[in-house]
Design a protein around this nucleic acid. Structure first.
Length: 881
RNA sequence: GGGAGCAUAGCUCAGUUGGUUUAGAGCAUCUGCCUUACAAGCAGAGGGUCGGGGGUUCGACUCCCUCUGCUCCCACCA
């Protein structure tokens, strides 16, 4: 079979993915084996794959594939999130492009459009994950708005309502004027924003609503809200404003009279010390207003426009109104000055609209008790955060959590199961029928037609916090007393969760809460928090910067295996990934290395009659030991979620140990056959290597594994056992390392003297070199080895640890150069010896340091002395010649 | 404003109870090679004193303090 010199992933990846699917290798059912479960962080149903997904899902897949090869019953549950605000927004925009306004549609009509959109775009990202090689159990694919999952959400709402954790009330909430909904505190992103600080004159009223010539100056960033001012507030301690007590001022432009009040909230050293109080449009002002019984005048509508209560600029957008009112204030002589000012402004996470603090009626979930338990879950180690630096952040959040605003003024999502009686009383129940029963218990005359269901839907996270439960059992959430079904009992708690730290609170913390509440157990044991994928300049990937490559283009260009390895290369947990295409090239190169090693090995012809050469026997013994050592290291890395370290250990094992040393050591002479013993050992090693690489690069390993031997239909590398570590001979591994160092020493001499590798050289050994590995040195360095004796002044010298080696090169030695080199080496050794001796002569060191440490220093001293001795001898020999 | 974290070769990072490390890896760089698996490769080499300063210790990249720079999270000073 003639294989091309370069590996082409396009020829294999789709083929093997289809094979895996056909054979249902990804599918899991409960059985007697230990389970290993991961639930996918569900991407937005209408989303498309970006580099963050690639990182996250590659890590997930590596963990799942590894667990599967460890003999566990691995189950990776995929699915998507309905992402209510983001999806509803997209649908609104799509409809707008077609000339349809949401306001003109009924709820049912709009939802029909939304479902159509979901059906059209909903599968895209899951298809993209297949390209990446994700071994999800697609038969278990879930969507947070699947009817049964929605039922679970509704049950949960009813459960918490009955428990007294859910309440409804008028609160200052974060209003998104583009999404047209309230959002939770966590969905508000504060960004420093440059604006202006406007200083305005408020004239003192004469008591009859007419201005006097006295005025005070008020500084604000939001002059468009002055019409909603309910008072002007100063600090009671403020000497400057004592004269204002009991007076009233007039709001500019509309000449409305408002009182001066005093509250210690006002900072005397900020602004002018006079604060305009606008209870309807600022959280603090609202609280001051509550304390002083001020009226609340809401002058901004849902869309962020001034309404008729503003009296002026009615219908203008708030930012447009700001510009206009500034001009008007200036005109009227009320504008003292404007200065540049940078302050934090809240933006909607989903729509990027500037959040408008707004008073409205919303539903809330009490968080205190839930947060307390969820904190305990992490503090006790029931849930481990990796890296654990996030524990601090987590604790801080849990200790300061506020009640969760769970209602959203949207249509796409689970509708709140609250029903209002004509008199305004509310009943909460899973279905309209049950609600009617409950309502009739209050008032027997109520009919179904009288009941009005709440218009709002629930926050998306109110469904995704149930994800690790509801993907298995849709009845359990909301029913902690119920028996879990077979799947839930088997797969819960899941093992690992891989996700970004940006949703630690949105999602991870709340899943822990739901898990504790309904399962009385945490939803996962380990949370691996990845970093954020950035470009090589450290900038976040973004559409506007255009620095975000399309993962599918990369897969098409380099192959999924290369993309996976490239992403993993520098992804230690919690650190941001500085992505650079060169890493993916490195991944591709590694693919090619594996491919070519395969070409070499499978190209060999077995010579049944051939005896195993000594060098091969040594190499086989060494590699067998080395394999166990590396497996042990890799397992340790995996157990600590050091995926990139595990990857690098495997990478070097394959490239350096297997290709550069082992294969070279056993490689038969050109044209010659290979002995059977070595060949079979080599195939065995290759088999183990492919298995070790498989979780990281599933496609090429399956391709080569399938071609390495006759396979039966239905066989796959992904169900083979991962190599196990046996006891190994570390001393022998060290001996072999010395052989490689000797080879490198000879090669170095060849290079510096321009000697062909084909020309055999003599190598004289002086000292205790492990004889067993010498055949490898003979073969790879192309040398004849003998004990050192006689005059070696005409030889090039090097050292392997404490063993001296000489390559006699009569006529090629530059004495001056050699002397200089040796003298430099001598000086270095002398200095080293001095430092070691200084340590050893320190009584306190010898007295206090552990014996082992002292022994090491003594060994250093002895080695150094022997080196100095041999260097000196060589120097003398050279000089005397 | 509060809190957390980071600062080690050109770049990205290891360095796991302070001592087998006068510091390791990958990539990049330099030199020589189209050597019969692989130039997406082979062989070899150079490069940092661990952000600055101080302290604890027989001994610090590793612990403490401080300064500088960066990052993230939280936050109602208009």
């Amino acid at each position: 079979m003639e294989l091309p010199a370069k590996y082409d992933p396009a020829l294999t990846e789709d083929k093997w993915y289809a094979y895996w699917l056909e054979n249902k290798f990804f599918h899991s059912e409960p059985d007697e084996r230990e389970s290993y479960t991961i639930v996918i962080p569900p991407p937005n149903v209408t989303g498309i794959l970006h580099m963050g997904h690639v990182l996250n899902n590659t890590l997930n897949d590596v963990l799942v594939r590894k667990a599967r090869m460890d003999g566990k019953n691995a189950c990776w549950v995929p699915g998507t999130d309905h992402a209510s605000i983001a999806t509803e927004n997209k649908v609104v925009q799509k409809l707008a492009a077609e000339g349809i306004k949401k306001e003109d549609l009924t709820r049912e009509e709009f939802l029909k459009h939304a479902w159509e959109w979901k059906e059209k775009h909903g599968g895209i990202i899951l298809g993209q994950l297949r390209k990446l090689g994700a071994s999800c159990d697609w038969d278990r694919t879930k969507f947070t708005m699947d009817p049964e999952l929605s039922d679970a959400v509704i049950n949960t709402f009813v459960y918490f309502y009955n428990k007294g954790y859910i309440y409804r009330g008028v609160r200052m909430v974060n209003w998104d004027p583009i999404g047209l909904t309230a959002v939770s505190d966590e969905e508000v992103i504060h960004k420093d924003t440059v604006s202006k600080f406007y200083h305005m004159r408020y004239f003192i009223s004469d008591g009859n609503g007419n201005p006097t010539d006295q005025y005070i100056i008020i500084a604000t960033t939001r002059p468009e809200t002055i019409m909603a001012d309910a008072a002007v507030c100063v600090n009671p301690e403020d000497e400057r404003y004592q004269w204002l007590k009991g007076k009233k001022v007039l709001i500019p432009l509309i000449n409305k009279e408002i009182p001066i009040i005093e509250d210690s909230y006002v900072a005397m050293d900020f602004g002018t010390g006079c604060l305009k109080v606008t209870p309807a449009h600022d959280v603090n002002d609202y609280e001051i207003g509550m304390r002083h019984n001020l009226p609340v005048l809401d002058i901004i509508d849902d869309h962020g426009r001034l309404n008729e209560k503003a009296q002026i600029l009615v219908g203008e957008d708030r930012f447009e109104a700001r510009k206009k009112i500034v001009a008007m204030l200036q005109e009227a002589g009320n504008l003292e000055k404007m200065e540049d000012y940078t302050s934090p402004v809240g933006y909607s996470e989903r729509t990027n609209a500037v959040i408008e603090p707004r008073l409205s009626m919303q539903w809330f979930l009490k968080m205190e008790a839930l947060a307390k338990d969820a904190l305990e879950s992490v503090e006790s180690g029931n849930v481990k955060l990796i890296p654990d630096k996030y524990r601090n952040t987590y604790r801080h959040w849990m200790e300061n959590v506020r009640d969760w605003c769970i209602s959203r003024q949207l249509w796409w999502g689970q509708r709140i199961p609250a029903y209002y009686l004509p008199d305004g009383q509310v009943v909460v129940a899973e279905t309209a029928e049950k609600a009617l029963e409950a309502a009739q218990a209050i008032d027997a005359s109520v009919t179904a037609a009288d009941l009005r269901q709440d218009e709002d839907v629930l926050d998306t996270w109110f469904s995704s916090w149930l994800w690790p439960i509801s993907v298995f059992d849709t009845n359990k959430a909301g029913h902690p007393e119920a028996e879990p079904n077979k799947d839930l009992a088997y797969y819960y708690p899941t093992n690992d969760l891989v996700t970004g730290p940006d949703i630690l609170f949105f999602w991870v913390a709340r899943m822990i809460m739901a898990g504790n509440e309904f399962m009385n157990d945490v939803p996962f044991r380990n949370v691996y928090l990845t970093g954020i994928v950035r470009d090589k300049l450290g900038r976040k990937m973004s559409k506007t910067l255009g620095n975000s490559p399309d993962p599918l283009d990369l897969i098409a260009k380099y192959g999924a295996d290369a993309v996976r390895l490239g992403m993993l290369l520098c992804s230690s947990a919690g650190n941001d990934i500085l992505y650079d295409e060169s890493q993916i090239e490195q991944g591709r190169n590694f693919n090619n290395k594996v491919w070519n090693a395969f070409r070499l090995v499978t190209g060999w012809n077995v010579d049944e009659a051939a005896q195993q050469p000594e060098a091969s026997a040594v190499a086989v013994k060494w590699f067998d030991n080395k394999l166990s050592q590396v497996v042990e290291i890799v397992e340790d890395h995996f157990s600590k979620f050091r995926i990139s370290d595990a990857l690098m250990a495997i990478y070097k094992f394959f490239w350096d140990d297997f290709c550069a040393w082992y294969l070279e050591a056993v490689k038969p002479a050109y044209g010659a056959g290979i002995d059977k013993t070595t060949y079979e050992a080599t195939i065995g090693f290759f088999d183990a290597l492919l298995k070790m690489i498989h979780p990281i690069m599933p496609f090429i390993t399956e391709e080569l594994w399938q071609n390495m031997a006759e396979r039966k239909p239905g066989e796959t590398i992904m169900n083979q056992r991962y190599p196990q570590a046996k006891a190994y001979d570390a001393e022998f591994i060290t001996a072999f390392e010395m052989a490689t160092e000797a080879v490198a020493g000879v090669r170095n001499i060849r290079q510096s003297k321009n000697l062909s590798p084909r020309e055999a050289l003599d190598l004289k050994v002086k000292g205790a070199f492990p004889a067993e590995v010498l055949p490898v040195v003979t073969k790879l360095a192309n040398v004849n080895i003998a004990e050192a004796e006689g005059d070696l002044s005409a030889a090039q010298r090097f050292m392997v640890r404490t063993v001296e080696m000489f390559v006699p090169l009569t006529g090629l030695i530059n004495v001056e150069e050699e002397v200089a080199k040796l003298e430099a080496e001598l000086a270095y050794q002398q200095k080293f010896l001095d430092s070691v001796r200084k340590k050893l002569s320190n009584e306190r060191f010898v007295a206090n340091a552990p014996e082992a440490v002292v022994a090491v220093e003594r060994k250093k001293e002895a080695d150094s002395l022997s080196k100095i001795e041999s260097i000196t001898a060589s120097l003398n020999a050279l000089k005397n010649n």
